[in-house]
Design a protein around this nucleic acid. Structure first.
Lengths: 203, 203
DNA sequence: GTCTATAAAGCGATAGAC
DNA sequence: GTCTATCGCTTTATAGAC
């Protein structure tokens, strides 16, 4: 850890505590309902200290979202695309949908969507680092399967779009609205149904 | 128009003006960023008049959402399911996706999602009157096509879920975040691709 | 950098006249 | 029902001591 970090501010203990507390507040209660007093209290820090690190509430919010985006790169279980098509799609679908339905992801999505109109740059960054990146990996997977001839996909982008869409159907939208799920619909059944449909369509 | 309306309050000119102004504010700026002063100004009415009609800001918001839900029943162009499967699905998909991508629908979705945690009852009402109703119609359509034997669908709910999901894929989520659309992706191409995929899978 | 204390403004909601 | 005027509270942000 040399001191040669010009772009990002170097992490300090207080700064991290502030970001942690702010993330908890923003994700649980939304942007507007979160007060700087609540963040200060959560971080056991005075409000003035927050303003020493972040220019404004907007800047603090942006910092929280960006930090979260940078950390959203865990891809354990992602298939390399070398085996059977069904196997690869089941693995990819399970990874994506598990990440998608994680409470933290849902909360993140809610708050970014809510603030998208007010902070367009943030919405763009969120998409590119989050859903957009997953979409690219999925497109690459379909392209690889098509190239190897195990799947007859004319346009990998469209196939990835359809796959992602089927994963993010009613289950996702009900969770986003905080509603109970329909009986018997789980990650496994949804992924399996989507994979079977795609295999029948593209074989 | 007899005076026998016990449930809903009878419409008055001022009341409607308030609801119109409130809807414009809430959908454009969100719940928290909308002040009662702004609504009063938009309706050319005093703030006290608003409180004569609505108990609180929350109540006003709920009234706006519910009124909008009641009006979202235009189904021009919805297929009766008597003809060919491709024809019926193309028609249904176009109707759904056109409604889905309408700016007003997008704004509504944004604000309801943002307030879902704080007002769960409202989120539930929105789902049942909006997306839920569309989903039911779609499920019935698939069930009818399956019954007539023109489509081999084991579970109409799953088929409807997948169709709706494919319609609400990247295009929908990018619009929700206020981002530009990828080149060459329109309502027509998305609907057509989804229909072809489902036909290949379920024929 | 970090604190306490406070400024300055905006908010939802209400009182009281008409 | 509708208005004007205002209350009481919370908010973001800052000043000044250390």
């Amino acid at each position: 850890m040399v001191k040669n970090e010009r772009t990002a501010p170097r992490p300090s203990a207080k700064r991290e505590a502030i970001l942690d507390a702010a993330q908890a507040c923003f994700l649980e209660q939304g942007y507007a309902a979160t007060s700087m007093d609540a963040v200060a209290s959560g971080a056991t820090v005075s409000k003035a200290t927050i303003y020493a690190h972040f220019a404004s509430k907007d800047a603090l919010f942006a910092a929280v979202i960006c930090r979260r985006c940078d950390n959203s790169s865990y891809t354990t279980g992602w298939p390399d695309g070398s085996g059977e098509a069904r196997e690869a799609l089941l693995a990819a679908g399970t990874v994506l949908m598990t990440l998608l339905l994680a409470p933290e992801t849902m909360a993140m999505y809610r708050v970014v969507v809510a603030e998208a109109v007010r902070q367009p740059d943030l919405a763009r960054a969120f998409w590119e680092e989050g859903p957009g990146r997953g979409k690219e990996r999925l497109t690459a997977l379909f392209a690889g399967l098509a190239e190897r001839g195990v799947l007859r996909v004319a346009d990998p982008w469209v196939a990835a779009d359809q796959f992602a869409g089927m994963l993010r159907a009613e289950v996702f939208h009900r969770l986003l609205l905080g509603l109970p799920l329909p009986d018997g619909r789980t990650i496994e059944t949804t992924v399996a149904a989507a994979v079977e449909t795609l295999l029948r369509a593209y074989s």
